[in-house]
Write a protein that binds this DNA or RNA. Structure first.
Lengths: 207, 207
DNA sequence: ACCTGAACACCGTTCAAGT
DNA sequence: ACCTGAACACCGTTCAAGT
């Protein structure tokens, strides 16, 4: 056996990442295996290890792809400029992405950092980009002279984490409850109430 | 081979659950295997399947144990009655439990429902119990005549999900940021600001 | 009745051997 | 230079066979 010129390394990387993406979308992370990916792309399992350090590394690449597509979606929504408050629009867009592909999105929720290592910088940067979108939407809600940069960053992180928690519990079906408010209602309540609290604080100069 | 009278079935169940608990605390869910558990308790792997339907079932039992111990911890805190607001105390207690045993706690965050099945009722009940603690703490913050039962349940769920998101992202190290507010600061901000918003709404009769 | 251990159908990962 | 496929050390789960 030997070299095949059918795919350049970049093409092959793309094929492999897409195959992994599809498997996870269908069967979740549990359904993913190096052998199954190899089967789908028509190469042997060993070849994956020419392209990626490990399966964990490959999964991280899929996560990066997802974060990028989420970011693009949020950018679209930001550009829309409908009557709604920008933050609610962001929140609802985020939620709808999670609900369209729950198994894919679960990756970001469930994937703890592999063993002893750190979150790679390119991954953190993508998270930062998402938080930055929330920050800029926040800045349009609160007069900037009333809320310093650190307070905005803090609030943006709280909003991001809250959305994450709501989406995460919702896709895991751990948020049902008796009265059964939908996640959408909970997200709207969260954003509106937190913002109301923030405006109140700004008004009385507590920040 | 054959029967051993060294342990009653209940004792053995307890030993197995504790062994699984310990393995997860040390190495995370990835380190768990039926064979390793069997090794630690000194039985063969097959024996586990006399006691549990599957590894997933066993893991769910560990989660139940964790939710119970979290509930006991919150009950203690509730009884304390220090000067702090009860909700902040609950939130900080919850956070400290997560931070003491991040790998164990990650179970609850990362464990999606196995394949096609539902969350078992005894599991949902335990989640309900936690949310109920938040509800009763909330009721002490807001005059009950100003906030109906459904609104309290909604707010309790939002608070619970927000805490979950903050704890989850924090243990996954995905919340770091530039200015580096600690999770404690973020949790305090979340609870205080959301509550402020809630009080504001109550005051102007929006609910 | 309870427990074992071999067996089945899988894994992730490595690496000599091939083209 | 790139790819294979056998090999290694693992999995979860089942079940005939043993006491």
């Amino acid at each position: 056996m030997g070299r095949r010129s059918t795919h350049t390394p970049e093409q092959l990387r793309g094929l492999v990442i897409r195959a992994a993406h599809d498997i996870i979308a269908e069967d979740g992370l549990a359904g993913l295996s190096a052998r199954e990916i190899a089967r789908r792309v028509g190469y042997s399992p060993g070849t994956l290890y020419n392209l990626f350090d490990s399966l964990d590394d490959l999964v991280l690449q899929v996560e990066a792809m997802l974060l990028d597509s989420l970011d693009r979606r949020l950018a679209e929504v930001e550009a829309e400029g409908t009557a709604d408050e920008p933050l609610s629009r962001l929140a609802r867009a985020y939620l709808s992405v999670c609900r369209e592909h729950p198994k894919l999105w679960n990756l970001i929720a469930e994937h703890a950092i592999p063993r002893g290592s750190e979150v790679p910088p390119w991954y953190s940067e993508r998270l930062e980009r998402l938080v930055a979108r929330i920050e800029s939407a926040l800045a349009r809600h609160i007069p900037p002279d009333r809320l310093d940069a650190q307070a905005i960053e803090r609030s943006a992180r709280v909003l991001w984490a809250g959305l994450h928690g709501l989406a995460s519990l919702s896709t895991a079906d751990k948020l049902s409850g008796i009265t059964g408010d939908s996640v959408e209602v909970l997200v709207d309540d969260f954003v509106a109430t937190y913002l109301a609290g923030l405006r109140g604080k700004v008004r009385i100069g507590r920040i």
